[in-house]
Simulated assay, not measured.
Amino acid sequence: MIIVHTPEDGSPVERFDCRSIRTSEASVITSLVTDDLTWQQVKDRLHEDDPDVLRVIAYVIKKRSQPSLRINDFDPPVDALKTKLDRREIETWADLAAEKVATFDGPPEVMELSLSPILDAADDVDHAKAMLQKVLAGKSPAAPAAPPAPASPTTEESTSSEPSTSGSSPTSSTSTDEPSTT
Rank of each mutant, 00 (worst) to 15 (best):
T154K: 11
T176R: 12
F16E: 04
K43Q: 14
P150W: 06
S173C: 07
S160D: 07
V28A: 09
S114D: 13
P76D: 06
L115W: 01
A122I: 05
N72H: 15
K43V: 12
M131T: 01
D95P: 01
H47T: 14
L113V: 09
R70P: 02
R15L: 11
T174Y: 13
E25K: 03
D124N: 15
D177I: 14
I71W: 14
F16Y: 10
M1G: 13
I2D: 00
E178P: 05
K43I: 13
I61V: 11
A128I: 06
A94Q: 11
S175Q: 15
L37R: 13
W93M: 04
D124P: 08
R19P: 02
A80D: 15
M1D: 06
W39Y: 10
L113Q: 13
S152G: 14
R22S: 10
P144D: 02
E109G: 11
A97K: 00
D75S: 15
L115Y: 01
K139E: 13
V13K: 06
P150N: 05
I90K: 00
L85H: 00
G138F: 03
G167S: 14
L81W: 00
T171K: 08
R64P: 01
R70E: 15
P150H: 04
R45V: 00
V13M: 05
A94W: 12
A145Y: 06
A122G: 05
S173D: 15
L136W: 07
L54R: 01
V135S: 01
T165E: 12
M1L: 10
A143W: 02
D126Y: 12
S175A: 15
D49F: 02
T83G: 04
I61E: 01
E14A: 12
V135H: 01
T182N: 11
V135N: 00
S140C: 12
L136Y: 06
P147S: 08
V101I: 14
